[in-house]
Design a binder for these strands. Structure first.
Lengths: 222, 222
DNA sequence: GTAAATTTTTAGGTTTACCTAAATTTTAAA
DNA sequence: TTTAAAATTTAGGTAAACCTAAAAATTTAC
């Protein structure tokens, strides 16, 4: 339940990469943390032994439920401090990030909950990112069912509900998995089916399937 | 100018021990930091190489001017956070210390100076200890010339101004050094000389000498 | 003033989080 | 489908900050 500064930085980085692109590769993580791939592998073994992530050598990794919760509590601390620095101490929004990188590792839960209260339970940090609550719950603006993804916007598959074998078979057939980038090209009102661009192909999926696919939607992407 | 968390904890502990008793021994420091004497010796070599303290093997150590300044800036951070926790977040005064132990290692100078301003430049922390200013200056209530030490109170020699060979010879003869515990027994109005109890003997010193001796005065001692 | 007790330092090990270089495994290309 | 390229892991090593046990220096006690 208590992690080293280094472990926390890895957990947080994995969370962010996962949000951006579904899966996390060793090299991507090494790049994000300004370290080397070999160091990442070392840490993956450690975090995996602590059950914070699912790790199969050579096949990337994703946070476990426990790892995700840990990540959200670190992000909560980071964003609350950013809010404090900006609103109470008058820092510019570009300045707050690096200071919050240090403050986020101070781990007293009581401190953070009191700070949250003192700040009036702000829902967003100065960059507009949502602040997880004291249980690690986050309102995710940009994590939405594929059905609601605007036309001609791309989203990255981050979650599927209903993990039945039937549905997974269908997804596999259509070559859709966690991390697949999808772009909605057309909505057909008749049966609410969708036409998508995935990789280099154009595919069609039913409303029923689309309801079960959640994507991360990056507002800054075209 | 930037130190590791471990270095900072050593610097701070040395400062406090020096204030309390003039000199700092390896064992006392090990005890204060809940570590072992051998680890202290390791760190002393490191801090000594960085010119933060004067270190002669087997003869204890004292902070250099630079080390003292570093200590005061760490103490400043600690006490400002204590004040913040107590005044703004409503923590009880017994709770603030351990959280401030973590916050004090966040080193942004701008953060601390802004926090100081936000808190209204408080002169004392919740325990009544003075808060050093942004340059590391501290108003020392309990660091005073021997001349001003109340009768029948004990003080510990912590500093001597005028380091002339003549004065040091006299101090040596009277067996007074940094760390010597002194108790003022009498003031003689005629020549302002003082009669002191030092170790087990009673000695007399001139006003001129007394003016140059500074002691740490612990209000809680008898 | 010497012996015993205490304090401090040295010597040699451990763990964490890094590193480089070499060996594997997977992926992409011809 | 075999080979080349890229990604990942393993092997072996480093520095910081600890540790224990033994050696050396200092202090205290007789």
């Amino acid at each position: 339940m208590n992690y080293t500064v280094s472990e926390e930085n890895y957990i947080k980085a994995i969370y962010h990469l996962q949000e951006e692109s579904g899966t996390v590769s060793t090299n991507a993580l090494a790049e994000k943390l300004s370290t080397k791939a070999a160091s990442v592998t070392d840490m993956m073994k450690k975090l995996s032994a602590k059950k914070l992530l699912h790790y199969k050598p050579y096949y990337g990794f994703t946070l476990s439920a426990e790892g995700r919760k840990a990540a959200l509590l670190i992000i909560r601390r980071h964003r609350l401090w950013e809010f404090f620095l900006s609103q109470k101490l008058g820092f510019e929004w570009e300045e707050v990030h690096s200071i919050a990188e240090e403050l986020e590792h101070v781990s007293s839960k009581k401190l953070i909950d009191r700070l949250d209260e003192y700040l009036g339970f702000p829902p967003f940090d100065p960059h507009g990112d949502p602040i997880p609550d004291h249980k690690g719950k986050i309102v995710s603006r940009n994590h939405l069912p594929l059905l609601l993804l605007p036309k001609n916007k791309t989203g990255v598959v981050c979650h599927v509900t209903n993990q039945s074998a039937e549905m997974l078979e269908l997804l596999k057939h259509k070559e859709i998995g966690i991390g697949t980038r999808l772009e909605v090209k057309k909505h057909f009102p008749f049966d609410h089916s969708l036409e998508l661009k995935a990789k280099k192909q154009t595919i069609t999926i039913s409303e029923q399937l689309a309801k079960n696919i959640f994507v991360t939607y990056d507002e800054t992407s075209k």
